[in-house]
Design a protein around this nucleic acid. Structure first.
Lengths: 155, 155
DNA sequence: TTCGATGCAAATAGTTTGCATTCTA
DNA sequence: TAGAATGCAAACTATTTGCATCGAA
C-alpha cells in the first residue's frame, strides 16, 4: 500500500491526504525516483540542489519524515553513520560488510523463511525492507588481526 | 574465540595481549558479566559508578572499544538511539519493534538457514551476534494510521 | 487568506579526540 | 619509569526544533 510508481502518482496521493506540494518536495521525490538506493539525507540534499534553488537540510529531513509517514520511503541504519533512505516500493534487505562498509542488496525472497519462523515462534512481523544484516562480504572474510582491526571505511 | 567465561579469564587474556588492567576496566568487565544484555555506554557507566569512583564516559567508550577489538564484547545499533553492548560469548540476534521499541532476544539457531543461504548465494558471512531485525512485535501488529505514526518509544 | 512548509540558527544526542596527568607493569 | 590509561573539555556528526517568514490551495 502507498507504493506509488511515479512522482506524479505520489504527488496526487499526497495531495489527497492534505499534504502541500512545494517545489522542493517535488524535486526531492524526483531525486528519490531517479537515483541510486540507500542515500543519506545529505546526499539527497545535494541531489536536490542540482535541480532547484538551495533547500535546507532540515527541510530535507522534514520531507523525508513526511514521506515515510505516508509510506513512500523507508529508512535504514546501515553501519554507524547516517541513515539512508529508499523508496518503499523498491526497498530490499541489505547486507552490510563490517570490514569494508560495502552494502549488498538482497531480494526479499531470501528472507521469506526467516520471516515465517519469526512470525510463528515470536509473533514478530519482520519488516523485510528494514533488514540490515551485519557480517563480512566475500572480499573481507579473513578476521581482523587481534587488537588491530581494520577501520570501518565507506566505499 | 576470545570468548572468556569469567572476568578473571578475560583479565588474564587481556594482560597476555599487553592490555593494562585498571580498576575501572575490571569494574566494567564485572558490570558486563553481571547485568542484563544490550546496555548503552551510559547505562554501563552508571553501573560502573556504583562500584568504583567516578569513571568518565569517554573512558567507558574507550574501554568498550578495546574490549570489542579483543573480541570480548560486540555492539549493535538497536533503533535510532545509542549503541548497545553485550558480551560476545552471550550475544544473540535481536528483534526490534519499530512501534514500541521492545527488544526480543533470539537464539542464534533461528538464523542458521538464513546464514547458510547468504553464504552460498552472496559469499556473505553474516555475524549472528550483530543481527538486529526491525519489524513489529506481537503487541504492535496493527499498522500505524496514515500520517500519524506512533512515536518510537523506548521501553 | 489561512495554515502548512521553509530557512536559519541554535539545541540536542551520541561519540570521539587532544592534551596534560596518573598509574600499571 | 616508560608508555598505556584516564579525566576533562572541546570538537564532531547526525538530527531535531523554535521561530519568524513564505507560499500552496
Amino acid at each position: 500500500l502507498n507504493e506509488a510508481r511515479t512522482v506524479e502518482e505520489t504527488v496526487t496521493m499526497l495531495r489527497q491526504r492534505g499534504t502541500r506540494i512545494t517545489s522542493a518536495r517535488r524535486v526531492l521525490l524526483g531525486a528519490l525516483f531517479d537515483g541510486p538506493a540507500h542515500r543519506t539525507a545529505e546526499q539527497l540534499a545535494a541531489e536536490v540542489q542540482k535541480h532547484a534553488t538551495a533547500v535546507s537540510l532540515s527541510t530535507i529531513y522534514r520531507n523525508l519524515d513526511e514521506l515515510e509517514r505516508h509510506g513512500v520511503v523507508v529508512h535504514s541504519h546501515l553501519g554507524h553513520r547516517a541513515a539512508t533512505y529508499d523508496l518503499a516500493a523498491s526497498a530490499q534487505g541489505h547486507l552490510v560488510c563490517e570490514a569494508c562498509g560495502a552494502v549488498i542488496e538482497v531480494p526479499n525472497e531470501v528472507f521469506r523463511s526467516l520471516r515465517y519462523s519469526l512470525e510463528a515462534d515470536f509473533g514478530f512481523a519482520a519488516d523485510p525492507r528494514h533488514l540490515a544484516i551485519a557480517g563480512r562480504c566475500a572480499d573481507c572474510q579473513t578476521p581482523p588481526p587481534p587488537a588491530a582491526p581494520p577501520d570501518l571505511m565507506e566505499v
